[in-house]
Structure formats: C-alpha cells, structure tokens
Design a protein around this nucleic acid. Sequence first.
DNA 1: TTGTATGCGTTATCAA
DNA 2: TTGATAACGCATACAA
Lengths: 338, 338
Amino acid sequence: MTKRPTIHDVASLAGVSKSLVALVFKQDSGVSEARRERVLAAAAELGYTPNAWASALRSNNTGFVGIIVADLHNPIFTEIADEARQTLAAKGVFSFVATASILDTPNGRVLDPAPIQHLLDLKPGSLLIVGGLPDLQPFSSLQASIPIVVALTSATTLPGAVSIRSDDRAAMAEITAHLSGLGHSTVAYIGPSGRTVMDDRRRAFEEAAADSGLRFVWVSTGGDTDEAAGRQAATEALALTVKPTAMVCFNDNIAFGAQDAVARLQPPRQVAVTGYDNTYIAGFERISLTTVDQDRSHIVRQACNLLTDAAAFEAARGSALLVAPTLVVRGSSVKLTN
Amino acid sequence: MTKRPTIHDVASLAGVSKSLVALVFKQDSGVSEARRERVLAAAAELGYTPNAWASALRSNNTGFVGIIVADLHNPIFTEIADEARQTLAAKGVFSFVATASILDTPNGRVLDPAPIQHLLDLKPGSLLIVGGLPDLQPFSSLQASIPIVVALTSATTLPGAVSIRSDDRAAMAEITAHLSGLGHSTVAYIGPSGRTVMDDRRRAFEEAAADSGLRFVWVSTGGDTDEAAGRQAATEALALTVKPTAMVCFNDNIAFGAQDAVARLQPPRQVAVTGYDNTYIAGFERISLTTVDQDRSHIVRQACNLLTDAAAFEAARGSALLVAPTLVVRGSSVKLTN
DNA sequence: TTGTATGCGTTATCAA
DNA sequence: TTGATAACGCATACAA
C-alpha cells in the first residue's frame, strides 16, 4: 500500500517546515511566492490532500456541514439532503451526510447514538437534521456552540435550533377545501402519532376538516410512516361502517399504501387519496397522487443560508420558519360519485 | 457548551492513568476487576464515549466499514446501503455511509474526489461501494490494503476488489422468454451506455433477444438512469415507425418513466414494460411493474460477510460473484393484443 | 516571512 | 498489572 502523503512529506520534498505547508493550504497571504510555488509543486507531485479530520481534531472547527438524514426510505429526506449537499458544494462548503439509525428496543424506538456521535466527533461547523428523529438529546449540548437547522419538522426540544418546515395548517386547509369542493363529506386521516410533526399535522387536519364541515376519523399507523403501514391502516379505514370517501395521508409513502388498499377493494370503489411531500413518485402518471408540495428548493436554500451565515443564524435562532406549501392536484383526488 | 469528556477526564476521575482507561475500552483482559469497575463507573458518570476518529488517527485502523452510495435517487442503492448498515450493526460492526457526488464537467461526468477522500481519511477497515461510479481511481491505491466490495456492478478497473451483482444474462433470458411467451415480437431496450453494468446489461439483453427470436432496437438514455431520461427515451421508442409492443428497461427508475410515456400515448395503446431492481415502488398496485429481483438480502449478506471476514475476502479477492436473479411478473407485462 | 514547540484524543511501546 | 512517553496529521502561538 502506498501511504497517503502527509504535510510532512510535502515539507521535506519542498525543503521547508511543516508549518509553512500548513500556511500555504490555509491562507492566501503570509507566504512568499517562491516558497508557495515550491510547496504547491511538491504537493502536486505527491498528490497530497490535507486530512480534514486530523485538522479538525486540532482546530476544533472544520467548517464542514454535517447532514443527518432521519430515514433513507423516504425520498423527500434523501432529496433534501442531496440538494443541500449540492447547494453547499456550489458555495464551496463541504458537507458530510450521515444516516440516523433507529433501534427497536423494548422501550420503543430509540435513536442509536453511535452514528450521530461519530458525526459529531468530526466536529462539524454546523448541522442540518433532515426529518424527525425520536430523540434530539444528543444535540442538546451542542446547540449553544454551533448552528443547528432542522428541516421538515420542528425542534421543540432544541430551543437553540432553527426549524424550517411547511405550514401544515395552510396545507390542510387547502386539502379539506379541495375535497369538500369535490363533494366529499366523510374523510379518514391516515397517519402516525407520537412526535411533533406527526401530531401537529394531524391536529392541523382535524381543525381544517372541522372548519370545512367534514366528518372525519383518524386511523393511526402507529409510529410508522411507510407504505406498508399506510396500506394496513387504510385497509382498516375502508372497512369502517361509516365508509370514508377520501383519505388524507400524513405523507406520500403512506398515501401510496392507501392507494394500494383502494386498488384492492372488492368490489371496486373509488376513494380519493391525498399525500404530503410531492415526492417524485407522486408525479408518475400511474400514481398521480394529489399531494402537498413543500417547496423543497426554498427550504434547502434557506437552510443552507443559515448554515453558512453565522449572523443570519443568530438572527433566526430559536425560530420556526414556515414555508408556504402548494397543493398539487392530480388524479388521485377524484370527485365524489354515487 | 459542555465539552465532551475525554479519556483524560475519565482517568483523573477514576484516579488512574489514561493508558489504563484505553485498555479497559479495548480489551477484556489485562486489567484488574477493581480498576476496571472504577474506570467504567467514572466513564458512565461522565458519559464518556471514545472518539473513534482520534483513535483512527493513531492506530491507522478503526475497523469500521465505509459505505459509499453512488446515487441517493435510486431506491435500490439506499435500500442496499441501509440493509448493509443494519446487518453490520447486528454483528457489532459500525459503518459510516457517505454519498458520492458526481460533477458535471465539460469532459463529462466526473467523480468528485472530495467526499470519497474524506471518507478514506477516516481510515475504514473495509469498503462497500454500492452502485456504479464514473471512476474507481480514488480506490486503486487502497485495494491492496483493505477489502473492497462493489455491489450491483462490476469493478473491472479494480482487480483487487470483489464485485457482487446479479446475473444479467440469466435475467434477460427470463425477460425475453417471458415477453415472447406473451406474443411480443418487437421489443425496445431503454437504457444508458458508457459504464460496465450499463453496457453489459444491454448486451445481455441483445443476446437473449436474438436467442428468443425477437426483433429489437435500443433507444439510449445517454448516461442517465432516472425516470426523466426513461420517459424521454421511451417516448422516442414509441414513435418509431416499427412500433415496439414491449419495452425492456435498464432499471426500475427508467421503467417508471417508460410507463409514463405509455400512459400518455394518444390514442391509448397497450405496451408491456419491464424493469430491473424490484424496488419497493415496483410493487405498488398502480405501478405493478414486472421486474427483476436482485435478491437484495443475499447480496447484502454476502457483502457483509466479505467485509468483516478477512480470510473470506482473501479467498474471493478479484472475483465477480453472480447472484441468481428472479423475474417478478406483475401487471405491466401485458399480453400482446391486436 | 519562516521555523520551533506544543497539543487535539487516542493508541502503542516500553519500563516499572 | 500499571504508568510514562511518544506519535498519528495537523494547527497555532510564539520565537526567530
């Protein structure tokens, strides 16, 4: 194995001290042109690149952005993470994505501290958390020292963080208005409970549904947010004695499961389904899911700005930014027929 | 900010030397029960966890598995990465997922070396690469020193690595037999070219199609593998003078795009579509995509075994393991009607 | 402008 | 069995 060249190797090849090499790779000024070129040439010859983590160990600040994805299975999480990574890269800021790991224990779901801790050991200059985590405890001691932005959920237990999410009340008002306009009067809400977004969104639905004069029932998916849980809960909802003619789902994944449940109905029956997130799948012709667009790029832009501009973050610290959602109407929200 | 406790803090609280604390956290034996308990108690009180990267710096070996995901947009990549992470965690092995970043340059697509380099700086004990990368250069100097496993593609430029992928020839033979059994005789292949899996899979299709006596045409998606490229290429294919009655797609994402193109046909016309990967989306009732199942869990199990068992890896070094695929027949592969 | 010394949190080596 | 010391690759204060 060819060992990776270090600052030491470059220094000895260029015939200078290690400090000088460090200087060349840090600042623009403070080193003479002649030496700078010698160092750069030596570095190029050896193929040297700085070891960012060794430097982090020493300086306690690398300036990179740590990105934590709550769940790889939800496309909107990976899309946001990926877009953030690209946006930051365009600004010349490096980011590192880590995925959270949820452990199923007898006491319920717990956040595995290890992957998080490992990312934090890397000493990120700021942190972006995408999606809801069972537990924000590992970050509580950090919120004073680095900017933390939480996207797609609110960070109630992290008062020093900034959260950016779409306005659920506005979204649910649009959805219920849309459905009642289509003639629906009995609607089921299919979604989980337990964490902030989950409960907030459901309550937002319930208020909006009441305002629109809809009869509604909530069928829980437990703590799950995937299509399997959606399929199961929707199947239950469709078997209720007071049959809902529309199902409003917590997110797209659950809605896809609900669509499955509708497709399997015997005898066939048309039931409207709506989602939340506008993942790319919702736009497929065969899916055509009416859903709420969270304005991904706006969320990402805002998040990246806060993550890289300390003053902007301080000004926003502790606030919960709401982004205006848009209802994307597609074929899944069918008109009521009888 | 409360600083994270270090080995130093634990040592002074327990009234022992740092070396002893390190020993306690390293091995089971070699330290007296009395001291071990004192150290453990102190560590618990302070909430100490070792800083893995500082230890990597010194020991040159952390034992963790680095996982590189080629593309977050493809569900099978994230699913494999996630399942590998869980499988390794069950074995008590920590893994860290990094996502590759592809840069669009005038010279075509290039792998951004930075994220890769950063992961390698962490000194993984072994490496899992999920999906095809434009360039395996950054790993060439590494293949002698640590086990590298490449999943879902072959590593032609990395002779020291082990690749695990499904048998494209077997899969394509099944697909073409299935389609010709349904009465199809003119089939379009929708897929990219340029990298190994891309070209291999296409050639496998062409051979199988010829063997099955099918007429076929290839409509390229360029270098793209997403649904937008699939939609576009499939639209072209459907407009050909010799109209294909079936479209075999490189992967599920492209197939979803192809399904979109079919759905938009005016006047409506039934065209069979097949995919490759059996992502969870393919199983949705409204999608019902006939596709090739790569036997995810078998691939993951095999990969994780090689990544954690040095002897097993050495025995397999340089080989390309083929996993038997299964054709999952669903509603999208319609019978030929006229 | 350049070099020396020291420390980040850890492990490895060697004595005791 | 335990402790002192050096080193990993780098950054920073300070001296030259």
